[in-house]
């Protein structure tokens, strides 16, 4: 019978990787944990797709929130309020 060679394998499964999803994307994990999550993502296509989605979700929200322009009437209102405050 062919024997299996069973060496220690220090890797995260899907659950452990997904538990650290937010911290991984925000670079808040320790170096060791980051490495384990990255290793898992390299071999698990399903998790890699989820991580990519969450990363793009943050980027998309940021892009759209930043697209808002300050209306000139609001800028004027604020500057007028300060002017009134100075006079009072």
């Amino acid at each position: 019978m062919k024997r299996l060679k069973l060496g220690p394998l220090d890797l995260y499964g899907c659950r452990e990787a997904l538990e650290r999803l937010d911290d991984f994307l925000d670079r808040e994990l320790l170096r060791d944990e980051t490495k384990k999550v990255a290793t898992h993502l390299a071999i698990c296509r399903a998790c890699a797709q989820k991580f990519r989605f969450e990363k793009l979700f943050v980027e998309e929200i940021n892009r759209k929130m930043n697209a808002v322009q300050l209306p000139p009437e609001i800028e004027n209102a604020v500057l007028n309020a300060i002017e009134a405050e100075r006079k009072s």
Partner: peptide
């Protein structure tokens, strides 16, 4: 879903 959905989100919805 990153390709099919994310771009549909509008600033108003956010």
């Amino acid at each position: 879903p990153a390709k099919t959905y994310l771009q549909k989100i509008t600033a108003q919805e956010i």
